[in-house]
Structure formats: C-alpha cells, structure tokens
Amino acid sequence: MSIQTFSQWLYATPLAVAFREMVWFIPTVQTIHILAIAILVGAALVSNLRLAGIIATDETPAAVVRRYLPWMGPALIVLLSTGTLLVIAEPGRTLGNTVFWVKMVLVLSGFALTRGFQKPVLALQPVGAAPVALAKPAAWLSLVVWGAVIFCGRFIAYT
C-alpha cells in the first residue's frame, strides 16, 4: 500500500470524518499542540542556556536540567498524541508532505540530543566540575533544532 492510498483510506475513515466535522476540533488540538511545544521549548531554553553557561551559573547544570527534564518527556508525548490526531484528521496535508517528514527527523534529532546529553550532565555533581564535552555546542544545536521544528510545523500548512 503506498502512502497515498493509505492517506486516502485514512481520510475516509469514520474517525477522520468525525474529527473534520467538529469545527472546534482542529483549532483546539492545534492549540494544545502549540502549548506543548511552548512547554518543551521553555524547558529546553532554560536547560540549554545553563549548559551554554549563560544563566544560573551559580547552580550546577545537573540541578537545572533535573528540574526541567521531567517536563520535556510528557510535553513530547502530548505533541506526538495531538500530532497523531491532526494527521488522522488531515492525512493528505501531512503524510504526503516532505516538510512533515523533515519535521519528524528534526524531532527525532532533538530527542536524541536531549537524551544523549542528559546522562553525563546529570552525573555532574560539584559546582566546579569540568563541563561535559560538547555540551555547549549541543545546547545551542538543540535550541536551533526545536526552532526548526516549529518552522517546519508552520510550513506544513503551505506546502
């Protein structure tokens, strides 16, 4: 089954039809999607600015990351669930769209970057301990990746 046939099948399912018929459904789910990305970006911003040495340098990176990391996982789950609902409602807009797949690769990269650095950073305890190698560029890169994710998200509507 090609992506196109799958999209057409999904588009015609009673669930997808029901989602589209409720006028409030798509704007409401999109709003929850935006709130979740805001929570993820807020948590990533504070953690990564600490890793980059910009804010809260009198606290350990571990203390800051430990405070905000628990928000990122649930935010990502909300993003994936609301995203799935939006794909079901309008499969043609997403599944056949290159920008959508670029966005998915970027989400995976952001997730991998966060996961990859959380362990060594969390293990760092004393304030003066040597920073984790590459943590600084990785911190900036993660922020750029989440920004690019938002960019792709908006451009899905136009491509």
Binding site: I37, A38, G42, F155
Partner: peptide, 21 residues
C-alpha cells in the same frame, strides 16, 4: 507570510514557556 508565522510561533513558545515557569 509563513515565515512571519513561524517566527511568531517561536516567539509564542518562548513567551509562554518562560512565563509559565
């Protein structure tokens, strides 16, 4: 227009994300 919207959403994410904390 979509570029403006994208920066608008990035700005919203940063405003809401930081103010929420």
């Amino acid at each position: 227009f979509p570029t403006l919207e994208s920066f608008h959403v990035i700005a919203i994410a940063l405003v809401f994300g930081t103010i929420l904390i």
